[in-house]
Write a protein that binds this DNA or RNA. Sequence first.
DNA 1: GCAAAAGTGTTTCAACTACACCCATGT
DNA 2: ACATGGGTGTAGTTGAAACACTTTTGC
Lengths: 267, 267
Amino acid sequence: MSGQDGGCDMEGGPDVSWTAEVTTSGVSAAAVPSGSSGSSSSLAGQAHEVLAVVLQIRAGRLSVLLWERARAPFAGFWALPGGRLGWQEDLDPSIRRQLAQKVDVRDLTHLEQLETRGEPERHPGGRVLATAYLGLVPADLDPVIPADTSWHPATQLPQMAFDHAGIVDSGRRRLRAKLSYTNVGFALAPPEFTMSELSGYYRAALGHDVAATNLRRVLLRRGQIEDTGRCVPSGRSGGRPAALFRFRQRELEVTDAFAVLRPPHRG
Amino acid sequence: MSGQDGGCDMEGGPDVSWTAEVTTSGVSAAAVPSGSSGSSSSLAGQAHEVLAVVLQIRAGRLSVLLWERARAPFAGFWALPGGRLGWQEDLDPSIRRQLAQKVDVRDLTHLEQLETRGEPERHPGGRVLATAYLGLVPADLDPVIPADTSWHPATQLPQMAFDHAGIVDSGRRRLRAKLSYTNVGFALAPPEFTMSELSGYYRAALGHDVAATNLRRVLLRRGQIEDTGRCVPSGRSGGRPAALFRFRQRELEVTDAFAVLRPPHRG
DNA sequence: GCAAAAGTGTTTCAACTACACCCATGT
DNA sequence: ACATGGGTGTAGTTGAAACACTTTTGC
């Protein structure tokens, strides 16, 4: 979205007006949970889970971490890592805790909230709200993951449980948008990298070619990356040794509110 | 966001690893609510409310709809409209229903999800999760609102209840970003408008000057607006009559994934 | 005619893409 | 030497901001 950015959850919406019926059930008390218990339905809360779309560039492809469900519903289908929100737990800590089961949390270089889904029918077993997060793992790591868990190319997902396919898509779009106007690249790349490596990560995440030459200049101009002064020895087939770069910041920054990185004209 | 876009919920995050302790409580069953009830805490769900940041340009200022709380907690403070999520209710319909108490839902030209907050302490009365929405009302309407409710300039909020001030800020930032790379303008403007009126709405929402001359060309080039062919009679002080424009689409579209509308260099 | 407001033409500028060319290394 | 891959210089393109100038109205 963003640019970019961000998601685009537009809703056409019904034309019906509930104005008449609703005003009966205590207007001002609506936002007070422990106060007047006006409506009968608000006694019990709703089950709430947190999920994560964990993305990493693996072998030049944007990949998602999924686990295979052993039991019904959706036995044999693949699902996003996550689980129930604890009773007095905040959302961010919760998804970090849940992810600890699948991947070492220290491997996550970035984590941000994506969206919350509340369709009553999204979970066959009963009403469960889900807040989804986007998590990123740098390309040089290979986290230890459980046996029921594996990485899948984000562009060709296996049979997905619940509404998780749509959530993965939200994550991909969010990442793509933010690569254009923020420095999220730092979360995909290792601490140091050559420009051709970096352009590979961008290509995988954006889905189109990214010229290393221009990427270098764009990111340098924006102050996102800097030259370490060191080089990487050239390969067995020769070639000039590549300079090593690093991101200047390892936290999310908006570097170009009105952004760039458009697909090439020809090619 | 492109654009802007979008929100930027970055988290630095703790270095602690919970890996050891968590694996005890049944790994694969985490996302199955009605299946094996492994953990003791997941029996009761959490209270969940929906809130809306309803924005409108009123008298040249970006304004937000708030209601004044009558009772504790935060008696006399101002809060966002909203209320408890119904037992079998989806999030979007719920916020529409809740808003029906404050403003006719038919007046809303745009509604999108903003973010979900889950800090355990965000509500003094007990644990309440909140999913916030951004709603827009076109500048020509003056919806009928209840006595305890009124519009406030979004830049100078009154004493706000709970974490609602932060949520209003998220809404403002989201709107600003999306004005740059989508056609959300349609949701702020009346069905037909002159370019100087429209630039006034953009100025109010963006917080900086927007030249009607250039806005016209940008939005025409992008195909967002079109000339109706009709004019508005000039005022008593004369002047050339202004042409009437309309947005071509009245649903959200991304018109420029890598967007524009930067603040003026000088001025 | 003159002031006021809207609209047009033109210049300038920033930021990027494309591409030709130069540089450093291995064999 | 020369193939290979990285880096630099530079031209071309796009989209928008700035601003002078023209058009159309009321008085």
